Simulated scan of single mutants.
Amino acid sequence: MRSLLKTICYVYLLLLGCTSAASSSIKVHYQNDYHVIFLPGFSVQQRDWQPIIDELPATIQSSFHESILFDNNNQSLSIEQHIACLNKLITKIRLQQKVIIVGHSLGGLLATEYVKKYPQNIDALILLDPSVMQQRVWFKQFDEKRIKQDDEKLRSFLPHRLKTVYNHLISELDAADRQVTPLPPSTKVTLFTSMKVPTNPLFFEETQQGKQLWLKLHTALLENVEQQSHILLSDVGHNIHLERPELLQRKITETIDYQHGINEPSSE
């Protein structure tokens, strides 16, 4: 079996990372007219993303969100609460800069749900294998027994407090409508979808059937988007930012250049 660390990393597919403006350790150093906000998955620390941040041009300002899981009353945060936290931060940043969000896994879910509610606040969106609100509904319809087994497998690796968070969040996903709500037409989006199937899939999301449903979910998100780039990666797993950091770095700089009218975004 894979290491405990790698197993817990796959909780990204089912859990959501978020920080509040008051509780997060966000380093802000305004240098340019664009601000990149990194939204990671569950329990991801800044050191996992720091090599990417360090390689960005010095003129690109960025913020990284350390994941928090509970509010001041020790209750698990809902997705709506995460969105409210993010909106407080973005509202402040937009007083001085335009905003680009980079969201991975369920950090990508947070990003898409935020944009659906506040499309005017985001200038561009870069999504790395994002989770989708409807994913568990779709997955359980295809193989509910397997999804329940996967849930138990994940719970066996989580400490008690994280089990509470996990249960709360998947209950929100289980209650979602089956119909995917597309992103607003005006959203400028680059979406990377991992199509790599490992030799020994650990969870349903890694199987061939899971990957096909994952692709359909991502396609549905982009259905109405006028300016979009959907990039399928057959040789890269879920953690695209770790396996292909140079790809993400290039996409960030290209996106900002394109916003300035410097070039056309590449297809990879």
Rank of each mutant, 00 (worst) to 15 (best):
L232S: 07
L109R: 05
T199W: 08
I256K: 00
T164G: 02
C9E: 07
E205I: 14
S78A: 07
Q97T: 02
T112Q: 11
I147P: 06
L128V: 00
L191S: 10
Q209P: 06
E226H: 11
I52E: 07
L89H: 12
C9F: 06
Q45T: 09
S25C: 10
E223H: 13
N200H: 09
V11F: 10
S266H: 06
L16Y: 01
D177Y: 05
V236G: 03
S78I: 00
G41M: 02
D177H: 14
L39R: 01
H241E: 15
L109C: 01
Q97N: 09
F142A: 12
R2S: 12
F70R: 01
A84Q: 15
D177F: 12
K148D: 15
D150G: 10
Q45L: 07
E206N: 14
Y166D: 03
H230N: 12
L222Y: 08
E226I: 14
L13Y: 13
V165H: 11
P201H: 05
E226R: 12
T219I: 08
S266V: 04
V102S: 10
T219P: 02
H241F: 15
L56R: 00
S67Q: 10
F70T: 05
Y166M: 04
W49L: 13
Q135F: 04
E264R: 11
N239F: 12
I262R: 06
A220L: 12
H104T: 10
P40V: 07
L162N: 12
Y114G: 11
E152Q: 12
H65R: 13
R136A: 05
E80L: 04
A220W: 07
Y258A: 15
F139P: 00
N263V: 08
Q212N: 09
R136Y: 06
Q179E: 15
S234W: 13
L106Y: 07
S24W: 14
T219W: 00
S20Y: 05
L5W: 01
H218S: 09
C18T: 09
